[in-house]
Design a protein around this nucleic acid. Structure first.
Lengths: 233, 233
DNA sequence: TCACCCGAACTGTGATCACAGATCACTAGC
DNA sequence: GCTAGTGATCTGTGATCACAGTTCGGGTGA
């Protein structure tokens, strides 16, 4: 047929189910901290809010439960898990190890284009953090963008997916803390570690990139733990 | 009440839904290689086989899809993903990195009881592999037991969960290969690496444990890739 | 004033039905 | 003989209903 070539250029249009949409909506609620540890979630209420039946929400929730981002209590209530300080520490250590690996690989494998993207993301976060009136919500998103710009260049898709799930799990705690204590952002804690990481990636120094990024995670976690907002183990 | 203490000793009995059971049944099918890459899965047929309605199966499948262990094709067909050689290599490299970390942490933190458990698991696998007529299915299970005995001692629950998901994802490919080429087991490839890992853990040598375990994963992956059973990227 | 109990309203879980789209065997037309 | 089309049957997706267990508020008892 004459249209063979033209048809070949058509992008595969993705199939989005209502469950996918519901998943993203809930994940966003969690990642942005509007759903905080201990909060309960009702299938029917969520469904009503999203304007669909319970079915898609049910599927979305079951995925989030499988990820450990939500949990069903023995009483069958769905809620955001309340992490103990011990749990949070373990999660942070896991993130330091795994995200450190990704940063190291990025430092060793990154292309120039990827380096440019990382530089741009770092600059965007810095601009927000150093601005006269930083917007916390925006800063959190830019911080996430920077981290994932780094992980995207590591060359290992499964590793990225693992990290994305860990972030989803840590999201509620981190954002809850940030909303309660936005001053940390102003002190530019993360800025130095980000700069160190960027320098290491530029220099193709894997171990240094891993160390700097792990330090970033550790300091953020230490800060949150020092606030004492988490339940003891 | 007088029975307060006695009641406190009761273990919380877990609530098992049909969806949980269906999930385990399907996961077992995948991990044991009875469901191989490319196979299609029907909700209704699976439900009939399990003697339940489609609902629990649906939920189980949606979890497995979220884990990347199953996928829904754009035609809405559910199937076991067919990995390209490139995908499998990326998965293996991710596993080498992450499971290496776990092994290193185990070497540095393990208790004597955990070391004993690991020794026992290693001996069990060795006994099966060196027996006159090794049973492949059994050997695969013992190999898994050994690896997870190591990971269980790493002290980081989130890390263990991450690894479990990676194994589920790699399961179909590995088991498919093993069923097609059981001779690798007989040659005792893995035995040396297991022994090296055990020695390193005994000596509390983290880097050595990570290297030995990563080598175990790499050699298994290389063997499978050399068979050419996987589609090119 | 406090503890208890009962019932209404809610919870997640599972089954069933409805529907649009995909498959596949088969046939009509060239 | 081979292709295009057609209809029965299957697919996953979503909505709805049924049910048992939980939660919570209001009343009754002491």
């Amino acid at each position: 047929m004459s249209s063979r070539l033209a048809l070949a250029e058509l992008p595969q249009l993705e199939r989005r189910t209502l469950a996918d949409t519901a998943y993203e909506a809930l994940a966003d609620l969690l990642a942005s901290g509007r759903l905080t540890p201990g909060d309960r979630l009702s299938l029917r209420q969520s469904a009503a809010a999203l304007g669909v039946s319970v079915m898609p929400v049910r599927e979305a929730v079951s995925r989030l439960v499988a990820d450990g981002v939500l949990e069903v209590a023995p009483t069958r209530a769905i809620r955001v898990p309340v992490m103990t300080a011990r749990d949070f520490r373990a999660l942070a250590e896991t993130r330091m190890a795994i995200e450190g690996i990704a940063a190291a690989r990025t430092a060793e494998h990154r292309s120039e284009a990827e380096l440019t993207a990382i530089r741009r993301a770092e600059a965007a976060f810095r601009a927000e953090a150093e601005s006269a009136e930083p917007d916390c919500t925006r800063a959190v998103r830019l911080n996430r963008d920077l981290h994932f710009a780094i992980y995207a260049a590591c060359g290992l898709t499964p590793l990225q997916e693992v990290i994305a799930r860990l972030w989803l799990k840590a999201g509620p705690v981190i954002n809850l803390d940030l909303r309660a204590h936005p001053e940390r952002l102003l002190q530019g804690f993360a800025l130095r570690r980000h700069a160190e990481t960027l320098v290491a990636i530029e220099a193709r120094d894997g171990p240094a990139a891993a160390a700097a990024l792990a330090a970033d995670i550790r300091e953020a976690a230490d800060f949150i733990l020092s606030r004492g907002g988490l339940r003891d183990a």
